Simulated scan of single mutants.
Amino acid sequence: MEGINYYIKIGPYIKELREKNNMTKSQLADGICSISYITRIENGERCPTSVILRQITNKLGITPEYLFRAIESPTSLQVKDLLDQIFTDIEKHNFKNIYKLIIKKEKELDIRSIHDMQIIETFKCISTTFLNENYHWGMDEVKNILAPTYIEGSNPTDIEFMLLFSYGCFLLLSDQQEKAYAYLKNIEKYLDNIQFLHTRVLFPAFYIFLIAACLDTSNFKEASLYLNATIDYCKKYNTYSYLRELYFLKSELFDHLNNDKEFTIWYNKALMLHELIKNSDDEYFDVFIKNRLKKLKTS
């Protein structure tokens, strides 16, 4: 396959975007570089530094990634649009829509990037597993998706970590509580080394299942510490949809501690927040509560 010289192709594309925005070279260069530098970039005579490229694309209302995708192939931007929609839906627990989107789009799009393909396969696996409640299939699929890129024991990317913790999640949901607790505790160490996040919900999503595993294995002190830290994180980074599960898990902790008053307070907080922010097709939280209540009744 013939390689793409991105920097020769960047210039004409930047010029096209500048003109579409009715922006002069002087306006684009202002605060970034000289007008002559912009001219040389647009003519393909100069390769902009990563810092200058980011400043130019910001002023044009796009990102460097968007620019490279536009150059790479006509369908590359459509892949990005699909990925953006997937990450929006995962924040809403909208597994049905994720599955429908992927099934509809994956055969239409020219997906050249291994990384993009891994993201799509990851969310196809997660959505399929949750919708079908086939957790053993999900665990096998996680291993298959990780195999081409991940070396066991190495620091994972955020998507690889999502796959790793999904495996722990599926262990927990298949009633292998002790294994799930040990596995999730073991991979927690990787969180500090993740350099780039596609979405901030990765952290609360992981800790919700680690907290649940702590509760299921009677590690209540750990559960309390994780709950307080994760609730603070969600408030700080506006990942409020995950507070519902966290509030419910806090009520569950108080039930284990035989504190009926605090159980009622946090249980009602979870339900109230759910009513405020739920989506029309959000069944995830209802299923989550039903399954956790069933565990409480049998514990």
Rank of each mutant, 00 (worst) to 15 (best):
D232V: 04
A180H: 07
A270H: 02
D286P: 00
H93C: 05
I187E: 08
K221I: 07
G3M: 14
R200F: 11
E72K: 15
I231N: 02
Y233M: 04
K294A: 06
N22S: 07
Y267V: 00
Q177C: 06
D192M: 00
Y207G: 05
K96H: 12
E178Y: 12
S218K: 10
K143W: 03
I119T: 15
E42Q: 11
K9M: 14
L53P: 07
I194T: 11
Y181L: 11
A147N: 13
N43T: 09
L273F: 09
K294T: 11
N279Q: 15
S224V: 01
E106H: 11
Y6R: 10
K179N: 15
F285T: 06
T239C: 14
L77A: 11
N97I: 05
L83W: 02
I62D: 02
D232A: 08
T129G: 07
E72C: 07
Y247W: 05
S299W: 08
T264F: 09
E133G: 00
Y181K: 09
S50W: 04
F130P: 00
L164S: 10
H198F: 14
D232F: 06
Y233Q: 07
Q85N: 15
C33E: 01
L184A: 06
F165N: 15
Y66K: 10
D116C: 02
N144E: 09
P74G: 05
E188S: 05
K221T: 13
N259P: 12
E16D: 08
E121N: 15
Y13I: 15
L53E: 14
Y181T: 05
R54F: 08
G61D: 04
N193S: 12
G138Q: 04
R200Q: 10
T149M: 00
N43D: 13
L171Y: 08
L77Q: 11
F95K: 02
Q55E: 09
K124A: 03
Y150N: 03
I62E: 03
D282Y: 06
L257T: 05
H256R: 10
T264C: 07
L296F: 06
Y183V: 06
G153F: 04
L131R: 06
L67Y: 11
K100G: 01
E72V: 03
